[in-house]
Every structure is written in structure tokens, then in C-alpha cells.
Amino acid sequence: MALLRAILTRGFRPAIRLPAVGTMAVFHVETGGCEGCAMEVAALDGAAYALPRAGVRFVTTPRLADVLLVTGPLTRAMAPVLEAAWHGMPDRKALVAVGACAIDGGPFGENYAVLGGLEGRAPLDASIPGCPPSPAAIVAGLAGLLGASEPSSSA
């Protein structure tokens, strides 16, 4: 956890080298937004932030995931897909909404094709606001999930 905090307090540094800490396996589902939030999550997964080195791994199947990370408003077409991913995860799992869309629909509230955000629809373990939130804010939100108390200046 100290290492996650290190990313936050030092701000952006290209390719910060971090030894592994306790791991968190994250399955990311984009449920129909503009991809802005998804791109900021991707940045964390890439060389610029190298979050996997801090112990947060992105996995390609829900069966290996501890955290279901959702970006974008929940479209009606993605609702069954998201539900299947959630049920495919082992127990002791967490649900995280990243960005305005995933939280309450943001610019894409309920209509014929969209249900809206997850808030009020599913118990959220963390919501990370922003349109989109910065990678640093997403890291802060994930760190909060591990029970760390973050210095408020870092959010």
C-alpha cells in the first residue's frame, strides 16, 4: 500500500519502478461510454504508470479477478454481460465504478438503450468521480479499496 501511495504523492513519473506488493486482480469492463475513462485505465496499465508493478494486475477473465472495474454507462445490451462477469468472479469481490457515466450515467443517463449508472443499482465498493478521472485519481480510488487511508492532498 505504501507503494500505491508513493505513486500518488510523487505525481506522474514515467515508468516508475515498483516492486510487487500484495496483489489485486482487476477485470475491466467498458459498458458503453465514450472510452475516455477506459483510456485512462489503459494508461495505468501501460508503461507510463506501470500499475501492474505496484501489484494491481489487469486480468482477461473474471474468474481470476478480485475487482470488477466498470467504465461507461450501463447500456441495456451490456447489462447481462456485466452480470455474467460479476457472477463469474470468485467470492470476496469488489465492484468499482470509474467515471461519471459508470456512477450515475453522467452525460448518458437512462433512455431506450441505456440503463444509466450503477449507483443505486448495485452496491458499489468505490466510486471514482470525474469525466474522466485522471489516472492518479483512479489509483487513489483503488488504493482506498485496500483500506488505506490516503492523504487528502493526493486525491
Binding site: 467498458e30 475516455g36 477506459a38 447500456t75 452525460p107 433512455n111 431506450y112 438503450a113
Partner: peptide, 29 residues
């Protein structure tokens, strides 16, 4: 179709500034 949000329908009724704000969130790239 999984990502269909009804952008065209949502643009209707917005003023110019609101419509442009929404257009900025159609495709982030």
C-alpha cells in the same frame, strides 16, 4: 450495438454549447 447510447437522440433539444459538450464525449480519442 453494445455501446449504443443514442447520441443523435440526446443531441436533440440541447442548446449549442450543451450539444458541443456532448459531442466531445462521443469518442474520447
Amino acid at each position: 450495438g453494445y455501446a449504443h447510447r443514442g447520441v443523435a437522440a440526446r443531441l436533440s433539444g440541447l442548446d449549442a454549447a450543451g450539444a458541443v459538450r456532448l459531442a466531445g464525449r462521443v469518442v474520447a480519442g
